[in-house]
Design a binder for these strands. Structure first.
Lengths: 225, 225, 225, 225
DNA sequence: CATGAATGAGAATTCATTCAT
DNA sequence: GATGAATGAATTCTCATTCAT
């Protein structure tokens, strides 16, 4: 269900030792940037910090990226599209809407579990980058919404979901709920009791809770799943 | 259905013409800062921008505020506490949980309708600022969560809400859903059909939709409110 | 004849001691820039050099000028227009063409005698600044040419000068001759014998020589002035 | 009337296609450098621009030249000496001074007609570069002046030219006049009437005009050649 | 209180030059 | 000879903050 591998940053997630084989140097910079952005925030992060983190020279960053902002944009473009592809894949499955929603929730939560720094940058920095207001970014975020909306619509058509609620609004409710949960995790606001000693189990549980609320509501008499 | 008055920024929301009566100049700075922060983001905003927007001299800002950051903190502290008081008031009412939740949702959405710039700063800058990780900020945000959690707990105790879901998680779902909806409004991602020509009506409808999903869920057979 | 005062840079030609009264600070920067540009050339000159030479803080330069290039442009615009006005004045006099040409030559040579650094910057830096190719600059240089051409045309109409030569070409010959002489002085290529112990006398003699050649030619049987 | 051949840049004036036969790669770099220097100016020109223009790899430039400056110096040294040899040849002819001067003027103007980029670099970059102040450069430029002065002196001795004017000053007048005409052509300030549809004719006419003024002067009653 | 000139640390960016392959 | 990745010193420009008036 959790398709996390699709998000794996593969090797060179951070500065590797020894000479890196060409193209990996670029990845090293991106990985280092994610780390530094996650640690200090985009604006406070210095290009020199990124270079040091990547174990390369100052100016080399500018061989691979036009400027600091392009690094952020690249992180967004490359990682987000990977993530989006995973969500999209889920949305096209032929399973009950409930299952698909749990998958999406797990995808989001697992992304955080496995790559918390990436999610932190995505959540805290990219969204409010000046570029976020740009068509490209908006479209990228919209794509996620539409994937979820597609799931909801299919569920409505299958008679699994209430037909009276606009999927284009409801998807925001679903993603918004997950997002704040993730943000809270990012910011350490939620630190649930350690009953779930296995992290994977724990995040899955959270995913199910969110979906449960989303599907069945909080009103008494609910919980009909 | 407590509303905007609680959030009223009083006069001098922006640069006023003519001499301002003492203390109002401080408000002018805050109002200008909100505008500028909303427009450019905290880091990109220059103190001189704020001064120009407020129609005052460069250095005067430093008579009223220690530094740029204190302006943001003040915005947060003063406006947020006002807002929080309103939510707190709702949470202590003696009405059904559903009503209280609608009120909170309306409070949030109306805050956006009436003071979009303030909400934008709150959503995009303050909440995600690095300072969010500071005890004070965390406590402040937690206070909102706790107010909502209190509503949920009361609803559970009154038998109105399912008792099997942790209010401390569910509150994130509720606020998160609202937050992304507001963010989408901020970023113009949602632009609902103009059937509701009255903005107040429109936002109330959105508030009800969110609460509806939150209470009754999306699963078919729901909508029992 | 020599109208040099029109080119006087007035006080604050260089860094003055003590606090400068507002507007003079700007002049101090321009004066310092001329010195530094003359000494090191535009590209080699650092903004910090200019600031130090002007006796002010680094960043203050950017209060008065957008960037380094604007300093050069300002030097050109302000000083050149002053110079141009002087030449223009000469061109409108009601005297024989020969006298006017001597005046112009003296104007150019005296500008160098009195403000060698300014002339050096004009000659060595501005002319090949990227902006030189811009309409404004071209027009500015053209204005000088036209002023000289006007003198020549008037001389032709008065029967003082040969009518068969295009003034619009001849003016380049006249100015070009003077320019290389000045350049040679700038670069110390010409270091005439010290027979003329008075510099003013000396430059006047050079001016007369150039005009003599220009009017009477080098061919034997000439020198009919 | 010695002309362009003396200045011919031989083959490989620019980037050639395919592999260049050894030594020609050096020429390719020089040719490319001339183009780039003419386009952007020495300081703004990047070594990478030159390499790209020459169609070779970045670092290869450093196999052929110690550094960027050496490229400029080489351009100057090689091309200028070629040019100087041509002028020198003219100066040693046994013809009337007037003819020799026309030849020199034609040499200069034709150099521009056939190799405008080279002349542009010479006029705008080298001659006014700080290196111009170096002994080597000064001697090189002086050599041109001396060649012209030699022509003038010979003319005086032959009774063709006025004996009362110092050849060492007059030569600056002659070259200066030509230089500004060329500069004006470089900068498109002069765009003579298209009556002379043949460029060669046109430039020859300009050369004759300059020499005419130089020899016979502008004063009425002149034009006795 | 007001003003805005002055300061200077800080960060981004450029690009000539080197060097391993 | 080629290549172009790697280096890092040098410089410009920004802008929060201070301070004299």
């Amino acid at each position: 269900m959790a398709r996390a591998p699709a998000l794996a940053l593969s090797p060179s997630d951070s500065a590797g030792a020894g000479a890196l084989p060409r193209r990996d140097k670029r990845e090293a910079i991106l990985g280092a940037a994610i780390k530094v952005f996650a640690r200090s925030g985009y604006h406070r992060a210095r290009v020199s910090d990124i270079a040091r983190e990547a174990g390369i020279a100052y100016g080399l960053v500018y061989h691979y990226f036009k400027n600091k902002e392009e690094i952020l944009e690249t992180i967004f473009a490359e990682r987000w599209s990977t993530f989006l592809a995973a969500v999209d894949g889920v949305s096209h499955r032929d399973t009950p809407a409930a299952d698909k929603l749990v998958s999406v929730a797990a995808l989001i939560l697992n992304a955080y579990r496995l790559h918390p720094e990436w999610v932190k940058v995505l959540v805290l920095e990219i969204q409010r980058s000046s570029r976020f207001a740009e068509p490209g970014q908006i479209r990228a975020v919209s794509a996620l919404m539409q994937a979820v909306a597609r799931i909801l619509r299919a569920g409505q058509e299958a008679g699994e979901l209430r037909p009276d609620l606009d999927p284009d609004v409801a998807c925001y409710v679903f993603i918004g709920a997950l997002e704040l949960v993730v943000t809270s995790l990012v910011l350490d606001l939620i630190r649930l009791d350690g009953t779930a000693d296995d992290a994977r189990e724990y995040y899955l549980k959270v995913a199910r809770t969110v979906v449960d609320i989303f599907l069945n509501g909080l009103a008494a008499g609910g919980a009909r799943s």
